[in-house]
């Protein structure tokens, strides 16, 4: 009898933990301000803008007496934080929607190119925009149809709501409903890169900043994905990087001024983004 009671209490405890653990997949961390030396600027949003913002902030904090906190939680969450005042600045890699436009104002801090990537061994180096669309909507399902080996294509896409995905779909011109159903959905640029780098069949898209030698980049309509080609308007897969904000504090304004200055834009170029000054 005693054993049974012990049993029951263990089970009860375990089931309670179970219930609790099963439910906590919910809300993500939101930007939080902490007190430190000087004042704090809290920034949150897009995982595409994030790496660039980190580099800009690191450089800026060397000279200015401010503390900049950056949370990469996705464009929509970042914009929401800016609207709610949870963050001073939201980062977005998609343009604002109608409800959001009235609440916050955008500042373009740089441009980004999106590049279509494949496995490092993939021989296909050039696709037309139409072929890209047909691959992502499932009309083309074998690499041999676009001049590659005779093997199935595995499409890798970002999750619904991602700024990169919205931008990519808008430019390539297909909707979420048209995306091939059995595509792998990966969260974040890094995840797509890893998935594509380890699968010979895969094709995906990432920001310019994430390009490295583990993956092979694809030319679009014969145009190489480079910053120069984006600025000259030749490379079609590009989008603006936005900082969205309400009325700015003095410190935040100074940070944005720094980003838009020549020095800031130089850092942006080093980070793989495309500076706005050369437009």
């Amino acid at each position: 009898m005693l054993k049974l009671r012990k049993w029951k209490s263990i089970l009860l405890l375990m089931s309670l933990t179970l219930i609790l653990t099963a439910c906590n997949g919910g809300e993500e961390d939101e930007g939080q301000a902490s007190s430190g030396n000087g004042s704090t600027i809290s920034i949150s949003g897009s995982t595409s803008v994030g790496p660039l913002a980190e580099k800009l902030a690191a450089k800026y904090m060397e000279s200015a007496n401010v503390n900049i906190e950056i949370n990469q939680i996705g464009s929509s969450a970042g914009i929401t934080n800016a609207i709610n005042g949870v963050s001073d600045i939201g980062m977005s890699s998609r343009s604002l929607e109608s409800g959001e436009e009235e609440e916050v104002s955008p500042t373009i801090i740089a441009f980004d190119g999106i590049v279509v990537v494949t496995h490092a061994n993939n021989k296909v180096k050039d696709l037309t925009m139409d072929e890209v669309k047909k691959i992502f909507t499932g009309e083309i399902t074998n690499w041999k149809e676009v001049g590659g080996k005779d093997m199935e294509i595995v499409v890798v896409s970002r999750e619904d709501g991602s700024g990169s995905r919205d931008a990519f779909q808008e430019i390539v011109d297909y909707s979420s409903g048209e995306l091939v159903r059995n595509s792998i959905i990966a969260s974040g640029n890094g995840n797509i890169k890893t998935t594509v780098a380890t699968n010979e069949h895969a094709i995906g898209f990432i920001s310019f900043e994430y390009i490295d030698e583990t993956i092979s980049t694809v030319h679009i309509n014969g145009v190489e994905p480079t910053a120069k080609n984006v600025i000259e308007g030749k490379y079609p897969l590009s989008r603006p990087f936005l900082f969205v904000h309400k009325d700015l504090s003095e410190e935040s304004q100074a940070f944005i001024d720094f980003i838009l200055s020549e020095a800031g834009q130089e850092i942006a170029a080093e980070a793989g983004a495309i500076p706005i000054t050369e437009e």
């Binding site: 099963a22 997949g25 919910g26 809300e27 993500e28 939680i73 996705g74 464009s75 929509s76 969450a77 929401t80 999750e159 619904d160 709501g161 991602s162 700024g163 059995n182 792998i184 959905i185 969260s187």
Partner: peptide
């Protein structure tokens, strides 16, 4: 490849707002 219930929540919560 599949998407179980838990993954759906964790995958999209970061970007979701409103009805989504």
């Amino acid at each position: 490849s599949v998407r179980p219930l838990t993954t759906n929540i964790a995958l999209e919560m970061g970007y979701a707002y409103g009805t989504h």
